[in-house]
Design a protein around this nucleic acid. Structure first.
Lengths: 153, 153
DNA sequence: TCCTAAATAGGATAGATTCCTATCAGCGTG
DNA sequence: CACGCTGATAGGAATCTATCCTATTTAGGA
């Protein structure tokens, strides 16, 4: 199990404490442990694996708490998600090289093309992880419709 | 509902017919309609929305058929998925700008950094979709562990 | 047209995520 | 430092997503 450096983890925990205080959010034991688990791992865990990892030391921890906390951390900007948020698998039948704009609120996804972005140089170190098949750019933002509904944060 | 240009759609359907023939896969009515639905949309639909869209004209279409067909199209290389395949939501507490390597088989995700990739120029047209918050590069491939298990395709 | 292997329908099942509500606890106040 | 209010939690039920199972159907070659 890969771990984040201890000092770095403490720094992230401090950021969380500050952000929680600023947002008027209570610092419960559950929240601190859940954040520690996500921030301390390099594996980008799922809610399920966070729950599994913590249930040894906190046998009564509920799934609901893990999910609520992770989304709360996401709202605070301390955590993000891989791929389109809270949704089912989405399919893409565009055979041309292309890139995606994805709305962080509603999951809307749109293609765009750019010959420049098709030819990115990826650091050599990445091939230590495995063989590379394709590379694409994901632009995250808020789509026009979502902005119209709830203009600013 | 945004639609792909008719000629382009016919071209993609023809590619599918050829690929199916080459792979010895039967061209059923269900498969053609499911492919038409995905290839004809710019919205990157989920399996559920494909099923919903088709159930008017094919009331007995089963969920299983939609899922099987979409994964089959993925295996043929005619369709891809957005984000890590067939998994639960994954969380990321790394506050520094970074990019991801994602294994297409097992969903393993790892961060890497690159100041060069942090400063990509995104086409102006993308801001027509909405406001941009962040940009990151996703490298898709097969991780070392998965390659060891099943070396080649 | 006939046959066979492959594909489908539909319901059961498994897994992920959210909802509901009674109980609990952080933290500001006195 | 005890008290009380309000937000947070536990636990189970409900929902949604995706897959599995099997009897029946069908594409496509002979």
């Amino acid at each position: 199990m890969l771990k984040v450096d201890g000092h770095e983890l403490e720094r992230r925990l401090e950021l969380f404490r500050e952000a929680a205080r600023a947002a008027g959010i209570k610092l419960t034991h559950q929240r601190l442990e859940i954040f520690r688990e996500v921030a301390g791992s390099l594996e980008h865990p799922s809610a399920e694996s966070v729950h599994r990892a913590l249930s040894a030391s906190m046998p009564t921890l509920s799934h609901d708490t893990v999910y609520r906390t992770l989304w709360m951390l996401t709202d605070l900007g301390l955590v993000s998600t891989l791929g389109p948020k809270r949704e089912s698998v989405r399919f893409d039948a565009n055979p041309e090289p292309h890139h995606h704009f994805v709305c962080l609120r509603c999951g809307l996804a749109r293609d765009f093309v750019s010959t420049e972005l098709n030819e990115l140089r990826i650091p050599d170190s990445v091939s230590d992880f495995g063989s590379i098949q394709a590379t694409q750019v994901e632009v995250h933002g808020i789509c026009n419709d979502c902005q119209a509904q709830q203009p600013a944060d």
